[in-house]
């Protein structure tokens, strides 16, 4: 009798998992990414962000206000006491940083771009990534899996151009909400370098948007960096000079 119950339970779990996987319609990789991009794309977005950086021996907390337009323009101002007034401006693939104490604006370039942003697991270069992934990667669906109770498409991204940060990436895309719940970034050698996990997704009208993301640099130990967005507003009106060096240094 006990064995029968166990077998029934196992079968039930498998059946549920199978059902969840089977529930996903067959879609091409490009189509899945197009739906993911549609979820993320916004004319403009404004939010408050908190970055918690687990260094292993201590945790740093950075608070910021962020305004962005499309993928190419963003303006970040830190508001936590230690970094109050520090600002970043990203236009295309260029990045500037403003230091309030010195009243100085510095263009982040060269090897500085490779360092972690404000000590986080996210490099400045990661923040400069832009452009549609479908233009840079061949995307194939390698299967479906359940992740955190959500049915997911598993996508393999293989670079089709040379100037991409990661030769290969692997995405777990929520098959119903079309949000990338997990991603793995691989070096050209095949070594796993970074991993990101979406810890919370929120609906904004018909749009599902990741609001808590954990990024982990696998070259070092530590709990990674958790980024949480609050007070998210889409299609906000912005002043004309929002993304200008003049405003950065104001």
């Amino acid at each position: 009798m006990r064995k029968t119950i166990q077998a029934t339970l196992v079968a039930g779990i498998f059946a549920a998992a199978l059902a969840a996987q089977e529930a996903l319609p067959e879609l091409a990789g490009d189509e899945i990414m197009r739906r993911v991009d549609a979820n993320l794309a916004a004319g403009s977005i404004a939010y408050s962000g908190v970055m918690e950086i687990d260094l292993g021996h201590r945790t740093l907390r950075k608070e910021m206000r962020v305004v962005a337009q499309g993928q190419d323009r963003s303006f970040v101002e830190f508001v936590n006491p230690e970094d109050e007034g520090v600002r970043y401006l990203k236009i295309g693939d260029e990045l500037w940083m403003y230091f309030p104490e010195e009243g100085d604006t510095v263009k982040i370039s060269g090897h500085l771009l490779k360092e972690g942003m404000m000590g986080s697991d996210l490099s400045y270069e990661d923040t400069l990534e832009s452009g549609a992934l479908t233009d840079k990667y061949d995307i194939t669906v390698s299967g479906t899996e359940e992740l955190d109770g959500r049915p997911c498409y598993v996508l393999e991204l293989s670079a089709k151009v040379r100037d991409v940060s990661y030769e290969r990436q692997k995405f777990w895309v929520d098959g119903q909400r079309f949000v990338v719940l997990k991603s793995e970034m691989y070096a050209k050698s095949g070594k796993l370098l970074k991993e990101s996990r979406v810890l919370a997704v929120k609906a904004f009208g018909k749009r599902w948007y990741p609001v808590t993301v954990m990024m982990k640099d696998l070259l070092k130990k530590g709990g990674g960096t958790v980024f949480t967005m609050t007070d998210v507003r889409f299609d906000v009106s912005l002043p004309d000079d929002m993304f200008s060096l003049r405003r950065l240094g104001r």
């Binding site: 100037d163 991409v164 970034m185 050209k188 050698s189 070594k191 370098l193």
Partner: peptide, 16 residues
């Protein structure tokens, strides 16, 4: 030890 670096084409790479 692992040495990670960008290739001349800017792709991330790493090796032991």
């Amino acid at each position: 030890v692992t040495l990670a670096a960008r290739t001349r084409w800017e792709a991330q790479n790493a090796d032991d």
